[in-house]
Amino acid sequence: MSDPLTAAPQAGALATWLAAPVPASRAQAQAQQFWRAAWRLRYNISALFGLGIILLLLLVAFFAPLIATHDIYAQDLASRLQRPSFSHYFGTDELGRDIFSRVIFGSRITLYIALLTAAIAAPLGLVVGTAAGYLGGWIDIVLMRIVDVFLAFPSLILALAFVAALGPGIENSVIAISLASWPPIARLARAETLTIRTSDYVAAARLQGASSWQIIWSDIVPMCIPSVIVRITLNMAAIILTAAGLGFLGLGAQPPSPEWGAMLSTGREFMLTNWWIAAVPGCSILVASLAFNLFGDGLRDILDPRHG
């Protein structure tokens, strides 16, 4: 592997600041680290490809009203189950709604679920994992047993149980999937913490009289963040699939929402007669999930090479 710094452009003050051999501040150090990582990403075609799709998805979600060609709720029983054509790019569904427009709007729901779940699960897992790892003792034992209990359920089953208990709907799906996806992150963060807590700089901070929470917050958490980011990016793919699975089983987004899993579930009935109704949301799920996987995989190579 070539040294990323030597390959970086060497012009301008910013570049100099980013390339300074000894960072002057914590912020600079972090910015440098980030820059190096981002710079190295340029070699990773598949990761860039994944990132490209994610950005495209975000754009599509943001500009959905401009891209969509039809009202996503407007039904027309007379023109139901139409094949893809110029008036309906992806055909129409069982109630005559335009599938193209629905898929476009569906990206909003999928991204909303994935990002919100990540935003809940990652901090939760991070806090639990670092606390358990750093504090050790009983706290560690209790927290890790809780993590074990959650891990002992397959995540779809756990999400299924929570959604069944909370009632169906997007918000409840988010809660349920979050509850099912924080434990692996906690476990990862704990493992990281165990390796960090014996390091010299943590010992130094301790000698300077920093409290446990201070150390966790300012020394341990930042060190765990790269691997957690990798993990959660990879998890987003799993989250998208779980959300789709819940939608597929009828427990996720409720009709007439154009959630991809729910659309797929409807399309399942028409697999043999009108294949596009299932194929379009199916491919959308595949593409979105694949994008996060590709990007996460690339990130892992860069940020967290130990777990290859």
Binding site: Y73, Q75, L95, P168, G250, L251, Q254, P255, T266, E269
Partner: peptide, 27 residues
């Protein structure tokens, strides 16, 4: 399988007269 499209058809017509129906699917 037919419950959902029927519900959505009714829901759309209801919306046109100001009646907002919230569909919830369950076992």
């Amino acid at each position: 399988s037919y419950a959902s499209p029927i519900a959505q058809s009714v829901q759309e017509n209801a919306a046109k007269v100001g009646v907002k129906l919230k569909i919830e699917r369950m076992s």
